[in-house]
């Protein structure tokens, strides 16, 4: 099986099938985990920490690729390394271990915007409990729109709906339902007003 090029991987992560994305993740493990593991093990990290940071870097890449204003200016391997290094530096800082990083690839710039996409938010977490109360179809359509950032046409195709308009109506209906659930949840309201 031939390897994906960077261009194919970027496109596949944005709009590929589940199987294509799965194969891309496998290739990323094969090609990009090594240098990141090396960096983290050299800088007081464990194999488990390296795996976690690597997975977070993939999540950052995955989310960035969906943003219309994002352009990948380096290879995917370099980008992942630069994100992982930033995340690990941040982790060391949190653990109050700010010694200079031993890094074989210092010439690779630091990707400092990486944290934004991984930040946890207490209110959003509470909202997730409410999302789980939605029916399966609603979860699928809203996830496809807000997380996968698919167009209505693609959502209609994926969910086997008659056309784009049906998908749009479904999204609006599900969104209204979600707002109603959030409005009726005293614990969420309390958190939101705080």
């Amino acid at each position: 099986m031939a390897k994906f090029t960077d261009e194919e991987m970027a496109l596949g992560l944005k709009s590929g099938t589940k199987l294509e994305r799965h194969r891309i993740f496998e290739q990323l493990y094969e090609e990009s985990l090594g240098p990141i593991k090396h960096l983290i093990l050299k800088n007081s990290g464990s194999e488990e920490a390296a795996k976690d940071i690597f997975q977070d870097a993939i999540i950052v890449l995955n989310n960035k690729l969906k943003q219309p204003d994002f352009t990948l200016t380096s290879s995917i391997k370099t980008y992942l390394y630069s994100v992982a290094r930033f995340l690990w530096m941040n982790q060391l800082k949190k653990n109050k271990r700010e010694a200079p990083l031993l890094d074989d690839y210092q010439f690779i710039p630091i990707e400092a915007k990486a944290l934004v996409t991984l930040e946890q938010d207490e209110k959003s977490e509470a909202l997730q409990g409410i999302i789980n109360q939605l029916g399966k179809d609603c979860k699928v359509v809203l996830n496809a729109y807000y997380f996968e950032r698919l167009r209505m046409k693609e959502i209609a195709k994926q969910m086997k709906l008659a056309n784009e308009q049906v998908a749009r109506n479904k999204k609006s209906k599900c969104l209204a339902q979600l707002r109603k659930l959030a409005g009726n949840s005293p614990s969420f309201q309390k958190l939101f007003k705080s």
Partner: peptide
């Protein structure tokens, strides 16, 4: 602001699902 929160919630949920998928592959 409300809508921003909702999008963030979907992002966090999606990130979590993706992390689980990556963990299974690992």
């Amino acid at each position: 602001e409300e809508q921003q929160l909702l999008i963030k919630a979907f992002e966090q949920r999606g990130n979590q699902i993706l992390k689980e998928e990556l963990e299974i592959i690992y």
